[in-house]
């Protein structure tokens, strides 16, 4: 840990300056907090993934995982989510260039791609349900829907945050540093993407 205690003992000017946060590590509080939060989220998904891995083979006389998966479709939707990470990067870089217009544009595109992903998930769940895989059908189905559902909720919350951020940038109502705020959202978004890659590999690709 960088143990660099900056000494702002004399300067109150430093305090008033938004851009330069004087912290012991030089890392802004918000960013550090976001990293901590994401660390915590890792264990949340860790717990859910473990539950799923334990129960994936337990569906007794009901539908099993490989009987319902539509891998090509899920691959397409995974790709869309991955692309949204790319656009998020573009949004962050626009924000750092203080280009509000393109920040908004790329945030919106990210949100749209995310929404497409969620729509894909809704479609997928609907087909699974029609094929006979309800939430309470078996241990496998309960743990599958819980895991992917939690991820879906994370994406959805992310989208609402992104669109709101677009609105707030538009109305010029972002408290604090705009570029950093966008970057924080970006961190969250990338995390959600990475989790999906893990889920896609473990849940869909490895045969049960």
């Amino acid at each position: 840990m960088a143990d660099t205690a900056v000494a702002p003992a004399t300067g109150h000017d430093a305090h008033d300056d938004h851009g330069a946060h004087h912290t012991s590590t030089g890392l802004s509080n918000n960013k550090l907090a976001m990293w901590m939060f994401l660390g915590s989220e890792c264990l949340l998904f860790g717990g859910l993934i473990s539950t799923y891995m334990l129960y994936r083979g337990r569906h007794s006389e009901n539908l099993g995982p490989d009987q319902v998966w539509d891998i090509p479709f899920t691959s397409a939707s995974s790709f869309v989510l991955l692309m949204s990470s790319l656009t998020m990067v573009l949004a962050v870089s626009s924000a750092h260039r203080k280009d509000d217009r393109n920040t908004k544009v790329w945030l919106m595109v990210t949100a749209l791609l995310g929404a497409l992903f969620v729509a894909g998930q809704v479609y997928e769940f609907t087909t699974f349900y029609r094929e006979g895989l309800g939430f309470t059908t078996s241990l496998f189905s309960s743990s599958f829907y819980t895991l992917t559902g939690f991820h879906g909720v994370h994406v959805t919350v992310g989208i609402i945050m992104l669109t709101s951020l677009v609105g707030m940038i538009g109305k010029n109502r972002v408290p604090g540093d705009k570029a950093e705020t966008v970057e924080l959202f970006g961190l969250y978004w990338h995390f959600v993407d990475v989790v999906w890659i893990l889920i896609f590999t473990l849940v869909y690709l490895i045969p049960a």
Binding site: A115, L116, V118, A119, T126, I160, T163
Partner: peptide
């Protein structure tokens, strides 16, 4: 609402 429209219509 925007999200709902996209999700619902597209699905």
């Amino acid at each position: 609402i925007g999200l709902g429209i996209v999700i619902y219509s597209f699905s």
